[in-house]
């Protein structure tokens, strides 16, 4: 079946950090996101904790409920099981790491309830 995952999750994809440095997607570290957000005028990093993982509308989809930021706002996203999230201190993680590795050659851990993912929000929001 076709996979509509963005191309930048493919192993070897070149990612530009906010300071201009280029890294491969598989080499990104938690600090790269934190430092990039620090010098961004618009974006800031939030910690989004995985609260629930449920089946999605289609067989290959899951609905992930996050508790976002200090306000613990509840946000649900529906993604394909192979969609990788970046877990603080751990790196790329997906609901089906075998499939992520198979499709994108990107090494992944299993995304679990309680994992804290890197997410973004707007700096200007008050």
């Amino acid at each position: 079946s076709p996979v509509a995952l963005p191309p930048f999750f493919m192993r070897g994809s070149i990612i530009q950090l906010a300071d201009g440095e280029l890294k491969r997607v598989e080499d990104l570290k938690t600090e790269d996101f934190i430092q990039s957000a620090e010098i961004s005028s618009e974006l800031k990093i939030d910690s989004s904790t995985v609260e629930r993982i449920d089946s999605g509308q289609s067989p290959n989809a899951v609905v992930i409920q996050f508790s976002v930021g200090e306000l613990k706002a509840q946000v649900c996203v529906e993604v394909l099981v192979e969609y990788p999230f970046f877990v603080f201190g751990q790196g790329w993680s997906s609901c089906c790491p075998d499939r992520t590795t198979q499709l994108f050659e990107l090494s992944c851990a299993k995304l679990c309830v309680g994992d804290v993912c890197v997410s973004l929000t707007l700096r200007g929001l008050r």
Partner: peptide, 19 residues
């Protein structure tokens, strides 16, 4: 070779906020 911005890789999870 395409170069992708760092912020494409992590989700934008904006909590609904009221002013």
């Amino acid at each position: 070779v395409p170069v992708f911005p760092w912020h494409s890789l992590v989700p934008f999870l904006a909590p609904t906020q009221s002013d």
